[in-house]
Structure formats: structure tokens, C-alpha cells
């Protein structure tokens, strides 16, 4: 097992080095800080997405979900848009980036807790209805976002376009420090609850029987999920299927039921996919398509495959 982690680690180092140096032209003292910021942001996003997906899968007790499939990031973008819409005269420009980020993240945690804890409880025995509800909620949030964006600025079509796919190329670097701090805290707390997650993943009844405070653990995990999604989405925008993609891969690499190796492995894979993928896309193939579109294509197909595999006639 540790050998696999070493391989992943080495792969990640290779990706990072290549990302920093490939095709670097111009003065190094300019290139290096610029790329390092981007690298840090991509790493942060990778860790947050993989961790939030592992958390969400533990809470919902199944392996085909991710927070973004259930509409978490759509909810966050809707909250951001609503903030701009309802704060009216004060435009986003006046509102400091940090403040709007903090407010939206706070609202997001409350909203996600309210919506998804009721959803999880009311659909415990009907997984399909839960997923379908999440997806429809996601569609609703996206439509509402589009609706509000058009009310705010009817001529601004670019807002909608960039809002529907993650942009790994233009990262909101001014939020990087606060995001990194939040993310580090959330990751630390997640790591601390790794053994409780092992128990939770056995199922509510079993966990209850083993003396776990199920309700509290679920709430904690959902809060951390919401926080991590807010961080990622604020930095790069919605990434629909990346979480599912990397966690499914991680489950192949470490086929054990324990969360400690799973969290590490999923984090490593997410960073490799993001940094390596961005490297390939931007520098090697020079494709104009955003990486997120490809991740959606591949991740969506994997989701479909997982759904069908579990339900062969």
C-alpha cells in the first residue's frame, strides 16, 4: 500500500515541476511567482474537492455521489448571485471580495445544512429519489442564477458563460490566502474525524449501535463539505464531476474501507488530475476547451457507468 502512495507522490512532484518550468519564457522572477500562485490554487482546489466528496459519500452512504452532483456548487453560485442582486446599488466592485466571500460562505453553510440534511433524512431509503432531487435542485439553482444574472445585467452574456464551467486559467488569486486558511482548517478537522467517518460509512444503524453520535457527525461532515465546496467554487467556479472521478479512482487504488488512506489518495489523485490535466491542456496540446468540459465528459460517463453497473437487470 505505501508503495502506491510513493508512486502517486512522485507523479505529483513530476506534474508540479513540469507545470512550473514547461515552456517558461521571460524573466524567471516574474514567471515563478505567477505560476506558483496558480499551482497553489490548483492544489487547494484538488484537496478540497476530493475531501468534500469523500465526506459527502460517507454521510450519504453511497459511492456514486459527489456534492456537485447534488447541486452544492450551483447553490453557492446562486447565493453569490443573489447577494449581488439583493444588495442592489452596492455592486460587487464596492463590496470587498473578502466580505462577499465570507457572507456567501456563511449563507452557503446554513443553506446546505438546511437543504441537504432534510433531504438526506427524508430520502434515506430511496437513494434514486435523493439523487434525482439533488440534480433537479441543481438545475433549479442554475436557472435561478441565470435569471438573476439577466436581471442584474441583461447584456452581460459572458457572466453566464464563465459561470457554467470552471475556469482553471483565471483563478481568483486575491482570495487565495483566506481560502487556503479556511481549507487548511477544514482539512484538519476532517482528518481528525477520519475514524468516526469509518464507522459512519457502515450505516446509520450500525454506527448508532457502536455508540457514535450519528446526528452530530453528519452535521459536522455536511458543514465541512459545504465549506470546502464554497472555497473551491469561489476560486474556480463549478466543477461538476471531478470529485466523483477522483474518489472513484482513489477507491480503485486503495480498495479498503478506511478513510485515512482514502482521503490522502483521493487528494493526491485530484491534484495530479488538475495540475497534470491543466499542463497537458494548456501547454502541451494547447486546446482552447476548458479542462472542466473534459472532466465533465469523462466524469459524467463514469457516473453513468457506476449507476448502470449497480443496476444490471
Amino acid at each position: 500500500m505505501p508503495k502506491r502512495f510513493w508512486i502517486l507522490g512522485i507523479l505529483l512532484v513530476i506534474c508540479c515541476t513540469a507545470f512550473m518550468t514547461w515552456g517558461a519564457r521571460g524573466p524567471l522572477h516574474f514567471v515563478i511567482p505567477f505560476r506558483a500562485t496558480k499551482l497553489a490554487a490548483l492544489g487547494l482546489v484538488g484537496m478540497s474537492i476530493s475531501t468534500s466528496t469523500v465526506l459527502f459519500q460517507a454521510v450519504s452512504q453511497n459511492r456514486i455521489l459527489s456534492p456537485s452532483i447534488m447541486g452544492f456548487d450551483a447553490l453557492y453560485i446562486m447565493i453569490l448571485t443573489a447577494a449581488v442582486y439583493f444588495l442592489g446599488g452596492m455592486t460587487v466592485a464596492n463590496l470587498s471580495a473578502h466580505l462577499s466571500f465570507a457572507v456567501s460562505t456563511g449563507v452557503m453553510v446554513i443553506g446546505a445544512l438546511g437543504l441537504f440534511s432534510t433531504l438526506l433524512r427524508s430520502s434515506q431509503n430511496n437513494l434514486m429519489r435523493m439523487i434525482l432531487t439533488g440534480i433537479v435542485f441543481g438545475a433549479l439553482f442554475r436557472s435561478l442564477t441565470d435569471f438573476m444574472q439577466r436581471l442584474i445585467d441583461p447584456n452581460e452574456f459572458s457572466v453566464i458563460q464563465t459561470g457554467s464551467y470552471a475556469r482553471f486559467t483565471q483563478i481568483e488569486t486575491d482570495l487565495l490566502f483566506i481560502a487556503a486558511a479556511l481549507c487548511a482548517g477544514a482539512l484538519f478537522l476532517t482528518w481528525k474525524m477520519r475514524f468516526r467517518l469509518d464507522v459512519l460509512a457502515l450505516g446509520r444503524d450500525v454506527a448508532m449501535n457502536l455508540g457514535l453520535n450519528v446526528r452530530r457527525t453528519e452535521l459536522e461532515a455536511l458543514t465541512l463539505t459545504a465549506l470546502l465546496v464554497a472555497v473551491t467554487t469561489a476560486l474556480v467556479g463549478p466543477v461538476a464531476f471531478l470529485g466523483l472521478l477522483v474518489v472513484s479512482l482513489a477507491r480503485l487504488v486503495v480498495p479498503v474501507e478506511r478513510h485515512a488512506p482514502l482521503l490522502i489518495c483521493a487528494g493526491l489523485i485530484a491534484m495530479i488530475v488538475l495540475i497534470g490535466g491543466q499542463l497537458l491542456f494548456e501547454r502541451v496540446f494547447q486546446l482552447t476547451t476548458p479542462l472542466a468540459v473534459i472532466i465533465d465528459l469523462v466524469g459524467g460517463s463514469i457516473f453513468l457507468f457506476l449507476l448502470l453497473k449497480g443496476h444490471r437487470r
Partner: peptide
């Protein structure tokens, strides 16, 4: 046709994802 008849909600779910994948291909 390959889905079990006991899971009616699986059908729209698969449909939404299937449509989403083709949509992503179009965007690509």
C-alpha cells in the same frame, strides 16, 4: 431497457446524465 423495472426513478436520472454527457460533447 437494461434497467430494473423496480427502480423507476433510475430512468430519469440516467436520462439527465445521458443528456448532460451529450451536451458536454456539444460544448467541447
Amino acid at each position: 431497457r437494461r434497467l430494473p423495472p423496480t427502480q423507476p426513478l433510475l430512468v430519469p436520472l440516467v436520462g439527465l446524465i445521458y443528456g448532460g454527457i451529450i451536451g458536454a460533447a456539444v460544448v467541447f
